[in-house]
Structures are given as structure tokens and as C-alpha cells.
């Protein structure tokens, strides 16, 4: 009887082992190291932003509008990014006018029209593979197609060539994101349209596209900000890395003439051995990042807010 009292009952042992919170060191270490890796990837953003702002904010506060509106110059104290802003803006116009309609149209075909046959599958696989092609290869495509073969139309190394190259570059991204948005529209919406005798195009135009508009918009904003930051393809299709004289030109002349973009200015300045250009490089990066991060943030917020539950 005495021994029974010393050893606890089976019920007691089980209860203890279930309720006692032993600290499991290895599990805690595992979780902590995972968290560390996540925080390390996020910390890089913080370090990058502080590094950029610390090195570049001086130029922006000192020269402000003068830096934004100034032209390229060999003198660091006079150089500005205006020509790059104009060049980037014009090329974005090409992306909006070329890549968006073509991309959304292709997505509509793949999601709404395509029969389940070999051609449709080929297009689908092809788009996925195009999305993985490195951007510098698109630069080669632009160099071959727009700068050389289509030179009479594009004027060779021009904003037209650059804008079209960027359009091709983001086309797969536009197609994939738009197709996802269209896929998220439930079939009941389409069936309701067919039920009242609408043709496929009528259903797509009045029901599917409006329902998917939010998702498509998110994808297009992301594509635009991707195109805005691309540098390598523009170097290949002949963005100028030196100086650029733009006097009073007509739009047509400007479109067919020499050009720079915001990222190629950053590249040219970063390569400059003159240390005066260091601060300018970072100031230009602040301008570029401000536009791109705002666009991305807008897209993410838009997506999170309007993620529609059907």
C-alpha cells in the first residue's frame, strides 16, 4: 500500500504529460531561425531604402525642382533627370497602348474562347515560357526586329523601338495576370448571360470583363511598374548612356530620335567615375523607386481590398 502511494497512478502520469508545458528548445530554435530568415529578407528592404535615402536625399532637398526638371549634363551640379522622366513616360504610353490591349485580348481568347485543342494549349505553354525569358533577350529581339528590320518605321534606336520592346517584355505578364482575373469570374455569371440569349462576345463585354476589371487593373499596374524599372533591354535597343540634346522638337521627331529613360540615366551615372555623380545616382533612384513602389503598393492594396468573394 505504501509503494502504491509513492508511484502516481497511470491517469496522473497521462494527465501530467498532456498538461505540463515542457519547453521544447529545438522547436523554438527551428521557429526562431525561420523567422530570422524572413526578417533578413525584409531587413534588406529597410537597409536599401535607408542607404538610398541617406545618400540621395541631399540632392533632392537642395536642388529639388531643378534636379527633376534639369537636363543631362556633364556637370554634376547642373544635371537633372527630366529627359529620363519624359522618355520613360513616352515608353509607358507604348506599353499602355500596345501591351495592354493585346495582352487582355489574348487572355480573353485563352480563357473565354479557346477550345481545348492543341493550338490553344500551344499558346498557353508558349505564354508561360515567354514569361521566363530573361529581359536582356527581349532586348536582342528589339534590336533585331525594331532597330534593324523595321528601321524605316521606328527610326532605329528610338523611343518607338524602346517602347515596343518593353511592350513585348511585359506582354506575357499582362496575359497571365489578366487570365487569372478572368478565371476568377464564376461560370454562373456567364451562364446567366447565355440563358437570356446573349452571344459569347456580349457576355464577355458586358459581364465577364467588368467583373474581372479590378483584377486586370491590378495586373496591368504591376506590369507597368515592371516595364518602368527595366534597364537591360533598353541598353540593347540603344538608349543613350551619354548626353542628350533636346531642343524644340515635334512629338514625331522626339519619338524617332535619341532617348534616355530614368533607369538608363541611373546606370550611366552609376558608371561615372566622378564621385559628384554618386549622390545624383541615388537621387535618381529615389525618384524611380518612389514611382514604382507607389504603383506596386496601389496594386497590392487594390487587390487586397477588392478581392471579391463570389
Amino acid at each position: 500500500m505504501a509503494t502504491r502511494a509513492e508511484s502516481p497512478s497511470v491517469t496522473e502520469v497521462v494527465r501530467q504529460s498532456l498538461s505540463k508545458r515542457r519547453f521544447d528548445f529545438r522547436s523554438a530554435a527551428f521557429e526562431a531561425s525561420l523567422l530570422l530568415m524572413l526578417l533578413a529578407s525584409l531587413a534588406i528592404l529597410v537597409i536599401l531604402l535607408t542607404d538610398v535615402v541617406r545618400s540621395g536625399a541631399g540632392v533632392l532637398t537642395e536642388r529639388g525642382g531643378d534636379f527633376i526638371q534639369g537636363s543631362l549634363s556633364s556637370l554634376a551640379e547642373r544635371a537633372g533627370v527630366w529627359q529620363g522622366i519624359v522618355g520613360s513616360f513616352l515608353m509607358m504610353a507604348f506599353v499602355v497602348l500596345v501591351a495592354f490591349p493585346v495582352g487582355i485580348g489574348a487572355a480573353v481568347y485563352l480563357e473565354e474562347y479557346a477550345p481545348d485543342n492543341r493550338i490553344a494549349r500551344l499558346i498557353d505553354v508558349n505564354v508561360r515560357n515567354l514569361a521566363g525569358v530573361p529581359s536582356v533577350v527581349y532586348g536582342l529581339l528589339g534590336l533585331f526586329l525594331f532597330v534593324e528590320v523595321l528601321e524605316p518605321l521606328t527610326g532605329g534606336r528610338s523611343i518607338i523601338s524602346g517602347g515596343l520592346t518593353l511592350s513585348l517584355l511585359v506582354l506575357p505578364l499582362v496575359i497571365i495576370t489578366s487570365a487569372e482575373a478572368l478565371r476568377a469570374v464564376p461560370d454562373s455569371i456567364r451562364e446567366a448571360g447565355y440563358g437570356v440569349g446573349a452571344t459569347r462576345w456580349e457576355v464577355v463585354r458586358s459581364h465577364v470583363l467588368p467583373s474581372a476589371a479590378q483584377g486586370i487593373l491590378t495586373g496591368t499596374i504591376l506590369s507597368l511598374s515592371r516595364a518602368l524599372g527595366e534597364t537591360a533591354p533598353l541598353l540593347l535597343v540603344g538608349a543613350v548612356t551619354g548626353f542628350l540634346s533636346t531642343g524644340s522638337q515635334t512629338l514625331a521627331e522626339q519619338l524617332q530620335g535619341e532617348y534616355v529613360s530614368l533607369p538608363t540615366i541611373i546606370y550611366a551615372w552609376a558608371k561615372e567615375p566622378d564621385t559628384d555623380f554618386r549622390a545624383l545616382t541615388f537621387a535618381a533612384i529615389i525618384v524611380l523607386l518612389a514611382v514604382i513602389l507607389l504603383a506596386n503598393l496601389a496594386a497590392i492594396i487594390l487587390r487586397n481590398r477588392y478581392e471579391r468573394k463570389w
Partner: peptide
Amino acid sequence: RKLLKPILEIIAGIPSIVLGVFAFSW
């Protein structure tokens, strides 16, 4: 998760030219 995932997506949106400058400067 809802807070951290968008930050990761923002990092994914940083243009490579910016990371190139960051790579030799920092």
C-alpha cells in the same frame, strides 16, 4: 502574414538596376 507578405512583394518589385547600385555601394 497579411502584413509581411505585401512587403515581400514590394521587394520583388524593386528594379534590378537599383539592386545593382546597392550591390556595389552597400
